[in-house]
Design a binder for these strands. Structure first.
Lengths: 336, 336
DNA sequence: TTGTAGGCGTTATCAG
DNA sequence: CTGATAACGCCTACAA
């Protein structure tokens, strides 16, 4: 059933039907009503292909995501989805892209199917990424450390969050603060490590390479690193895990080897996943508003889509919040 | 840059270019090479709108999801995405649909943008849902208890998984097994409750309405229910939480009130999220292959898409696996 | 206020 | 083997 069927049935021309359905141009009230009725009766739905062929728009936004972890993933998509839907846009999602070639391939096939692109790729050089993006497609980069580049981008304040957590541990009287880093070559991980180091340096606290344990954001990495850490002499008296999954793995390891938290070792995580407060002890963490990330991304992108002109690329940083529970040994572990 | 530009530049007609690009029809090797070269040099990308206008295909599959929890969500999407990509299809995702009206609206706007639909909606009547689907769009329903309906569908073996877990608890010598149910009017939740009851009945174990505590799949619901449960006299000596999030909330509650797990109360969950084994004590659970769910769904859907004929609607049930750790008090808590 | 007709970029069916 | 040309369904000047 096409627009012509509706036109014929309503006894008017296709042009009139089109005008009614798009609220473009003047149509008499009587005809308008009749067409609406016929369209509804025939269950007419405009053919999107034809429509976007002529309008050069798809009302769709492409989303490229890396392989990422549960809580993260769903929050981001949810934010993107809700914001997009509110503006009448759809989401074409493609995940599990781990290298530049895969991203490039995904971008290529999305060409012509989307009006804009949201790209999250924490483990790639932003500049390399930026060159892959067709100049014709507006895009906003997420978590890419692209502050210097000529692209729209939004980052989390990884540095600030890590800094706040480590400073907090030091303020609580801890002297030897260790870290389990995130995945190698991951931007978020690098920034959190940087925040950790800066906090130690600014406080004049002791630093040691031995206290920087390699992780990859997985529970098992946290577990393994914590076991190594538990055997050190002197043993660090505080641990900053670069995300909550690793922190939880670490809590488990400490329990297994009889290291008490927070008495022997204070522990802090990052992300503040819902489960954090139900850990034993409840996990202190750094909260990031992942949903907001998606929301902001869509807003910025739609702005770029609508004003095709040369907008100045903006770089935005989303703030983080320190959430103090009892795993860090704070006197008043406020349980929220 | 369109196909005409390529044709002109290569000194041939658009028909020939089209033939080369689609490997349809015979073209001399010389011309073929020349066209390939020109297309590449011009960075020609076919216009998808025009293409799908005439072919009546979009190479896209629509995915409708309810609001669901972290681990779940990402696993399903990942499975769908990978399977779809492997077959050259894209994913148009829309989440957070909570009632029939929202689903219907989402289906409507996806009309014409997708070749098929994957719908997960555990909290709706399957029949109501089925009527909303346009006859023209192939669809497969996930977790909808649509076994009797004339639609393709795939369910998890919620009943069997719950049954196995509860039977396991009983086999361990527990006599008073309680349950925290999932969200009301949720199909998965209902099936797990049914499995719980069946296991008790078949074992001739004591049953009581008081032991069926209402939950909603959230950590806090698990926490609250467990606190109520801890105060009962006689207190149940085993607890089956309808998902891991609630089980973890329950573990936290038991810790807070001094109930020992598994000595005083054995605990089992459902889903086997990655964090389960890192809990204290490590959480026994029921594993479901969420990724496979997505994979199977795409396979079934593409089959339906390609063979437009009247295929017989199939109903499939994905098996579950009991994962025994120590929270259930099993003598040998195999840590995997 | 309404209708006619051209064209969006492809593919497919014909002749040559 | 290759080239015109007619759809595909819709929007939008331009006329009436």
């Amino acid at each position: 059933v096409t627009i012509r069927d509706v036109a014929r049935e309503a006894g008017v021309s296709v042009a009139t039907v089109s005008r009614v359905l798009n609220d473009s141009g003047p149509v008499s009230e009587e005809v308008r009503l009749r067409i609406r009725e016929v369209a509804a009766r025939l269950h007419y739905v405009p053919n999107e292909a034809a429509r976007s062929l002529i309008s050069n728009k798809t009302d769709t936004i492409g989303v490229l995501l890396p392989d990422l972890y549960g809580e993260f993933f769903s929050e981001v998509i949810r934010g993107l989805d809700q914001a997009a839907r509110r503006s009448g846009y759809h989401l074409l999602v493609s995940s599990s892209h781990n290298d530049l070639a895969e991203i490039a391939a995904a971008v290529r096939v999305m060409q012509g199917r989307v009006d804009g692109l949201v790209v999250m790729s924490p483990h790639l050089e932003p500049c390399a990424l930026a060159t892959q993006l067709p100049r014709s497609l507006p895009a906003v980069l997420l978590n890419c450390a692209a502050s210097g580049e000529a692209v729209d981008s939004i980052d989390l304040d990884n540095f600030g969050g890590a800094y706040a957590m480590v400073r907090h541990l030091l303020a609580l009287g801890r002297r030897r603060v260790a870290i389990i880093t995130g995945a190698a070559r991951n931007h978020d991980a690098a920034e959190r490590l940087r925040g950790y180091r800066a906090a130690l340096r600014d406080a004049g606290a002791e630093m040691s390479e031995r206290w920087e344990l390699a992780g990859d954001f997985s529970e098992s990495a946290g577990y393994d690193a914590a076991r190594r850490l538990a055997g050190m002499r002197p043993r660090p008296d505080a641990l900053f895990a670069s995300n909550d999954s690793m922190a939880i793995g670490a809590l488990s390891a400490f329990r297994d080897v009889g290291v008490r938290v927070p008495e022997d070792v204070a522990v802090g995580g990052f992300d503040d996943i819902p489960l954090a407060r139900y850990m034993s002890p409840p996990l202190s963490s750094v909260r990031v508003a992942m949903g907001d990330l998606g929301d902001r991304a869509i807003q910025r992108l739609l702005h770029a889509v609508r004003t095709r002109s040369q907008w100045a690329p903006q770089h935005e940083v989303l703030p983080t919040t320190l959430v103090v529970r009892s795993s860090c040994g704070a006197p008043t572990g406020r349980s929220e």
